Structure formats: structure tokens, C-alpha cells
Simulated scan of single mutants.
Amino acid sequence: MGVVRVGQTDIRYELRRSAAVSERRITVTPGHVEVVALTTDDAAEIDAFLQSKRQWLFNALRDIEAQTAMRAVVPRFMTGSKMPYRGRMARLTVRRHDGPHVEVSYRSGFIVDLPSWVRQRDHDTIVATELKLWLKQRVRRDVSEIAELYCKRFALKPRTIRIADMKTGWGSCGPSGSILINWALVLAPKNVLEYVVAHELAHLTVRTHGSEFWAHLAMMMPDYERRKGWLDVHQASLDVSFLDRSA
């Protein structure tokens, strides 16, 4: 764990070296800063890179803190509560029914039908758990549909495409062509999810993040900058931790 001083604050960061990157980068997410360096970098080169990015890092941390303070909090999973979904706040309706299973649907808002046997003290935990499962199924289907479209259009053949709980980053493309997509993107507009999928698929052709990569992505998705801009601004709001409830 390294430390860089920004203003009057010491910022701790996790250093990761990668043979797959051609340029250094910093990723800032709530409570975590990751610095990706080249395998050939020595301590002086990493320090010089961090010093050159001090202002950017200061601004990024400030924006993350502001967004985190404003992000949605769902204190109770009950009728009338609202939760983020695809870039908007969706209303939640919880109903009781006599069926044996919990049923989740979406019709201009989330509807959760709870069996009568569910105890009141377990209400929030069960609703949150079922919503999380529904959202993961939804984003898995979205990613599959988007990837199928781009693979067919651009003759791409990823080894695998999976959604995952990712501590940092929104997606990755491994050396073997295996692609991971952060399932928290289900909270972003669908066109932003599409951008991340296209971004990782583009790495099947161009591995680095140089000018050649961005030109290739622009060919695949001419308006990628607008979608990327939304993600850069709102990334701190894509926090699915509100669904983690203990019994």
C-alpha cells in the first residue's frame, strides 16, 4: 500500500503492476484508489507519475465524495421506497400473496410479492436478496444481448463473457479473451452498460489504451465519448452495497 500527499491529505493507494497495459493509470472508486503501473517501472517513475496526477487525483476524490454523499440510500425495502435502476430512481412496491415463492417483476417500478409465511423481521433481508438476484439476472441478459450484437457485427470471438462483483473497474478483458463486466452497471443507463461491453470487446482487437484503441472504439461506437462521460461523472453512484442486508 503506497501513500501520496494531495493538499493536506495523505491518500493511500493500491499499486498493481501489469504486463497487459502500455500506459499507467489511476482508478478512483469510493474508499479505494488503484494505481496500475508498467512492470518495468521503478519507484521513481511511479512517484513522478503520481506527482503529475496530483491535481487530477484531488478533483477525482472531491467528486467521488460529493457523489457518495448524494447517492441513494434505501433504509427500508417497503412500498414507496425508491432505488436506483438504469440511471433513474425506481419506485418499490411490496405486496403479500398466498403463493409459495417470492416473485419480483418490473412494471414502471419494482414489484415484490412476498409469501404470507415471510416473517416481518425478515422482510428487508428477503426483499433485498431477491432484488439483487433479479438485477443480476437482468444485467446478465443485457450483457449477453449486447455482446451478441457486437460480436456478430464486428466478427469478434471472446472466449467467455461473464458478469462479476468487481472491487475496482467496470470491465476487463484478459489475455485469453475472457471478458468480465461489473454487474453494478445495472444501475447505469443501458447505453452506458453497452459502452463498457463494447469497450472490453474492442480490446480483443487492440489491447492497449492508446490512440489506436480509441479510434477503433469510435468506429464501433461513434458516440462512445458521451456514454463514457456519463460514467466518469456518475461512477460513485453505482454502488450496490445497499442490497447487502444481514438477517
Rank of each mutant, 00 (worst) to 15 (best):
M1V: 06
G7K: 01
D10G: 07
I11L: 12
I11H: 08
R12G: 14
R17I: 03
A19E: 12
A19H: 09
A19P: 09
A20L: 12
V21E: 05
R25N: 05
I26S: 10
V28L: 09
P30H: 02
V33H: 00
A37I: 06
L38V: 06
L38H: 10
T40C: 00
W56N: 03
F58W: 11
A60W: 02
A60S: 13
L61N: 13
R62N: 07
D63Q: 13
E65W: 01
A66H: 09
A66L: 14
M70D: 13
F77H: 10
M78R: 15
M78K: 12
K82C: 10
M83I: 13
P84N: 04
Y85K: 04
Y85A: 04
R91T: 13
L92T: 01
L92N: 03
T93V: 13
R96H: 08
E103V: 07
V104H: 13
I111K: 02
L114H: 01
S116Q: 12
Q120Y: 07
D122M: 12
I126Q: 08
I126P: 04
V127D: 08
A128E: 08
E130D: 11
E130T: 04
K136P: 06
Q137G: 15
R138L: 02
R138Y: 10
V139D: 13
R140G: 15
R141V: 05
R141F: 06
D142F: 09
V143L: 05
I146S: 00
L149G: 01
K152Q: 15
P158N: 06
T160S: 14
R162S: 12
D165Y: 11
M166V: 00
G169C: 05
G171F: 07
S172C: 07
S172D: 04
S172Y: 08
G174R: 12
S176P: 00
I181F: 06
I181D: 08
N182M: 02
W183Y: 15
A184V: 06
V186H: 10
L187M: 15
A188P: 07
A188E: 04
P189D: 05
K190P: 00
V197R: 03
V197C: 09
L201A: 03
A202H: 03
T205R: 13
T205K: 14
V206Q: 12
R207L: 08
T208Y: 09
H209A: 07
E212N: 08
F213D: 11
F213S: 07
A215C: 04
L217V: 07
M219I: 00
M219P: 00
M220I: 06
Y224L: 02
Y224W: 15
R227E: 13
R227N: 08
G229R: 12
V233A: 11
L238Q: 03
L238C: 06
D239I: 04
V240I: 15
V240L: 12
S241D: 14
F242Y: 15
R245Q: 06
A247G: 10
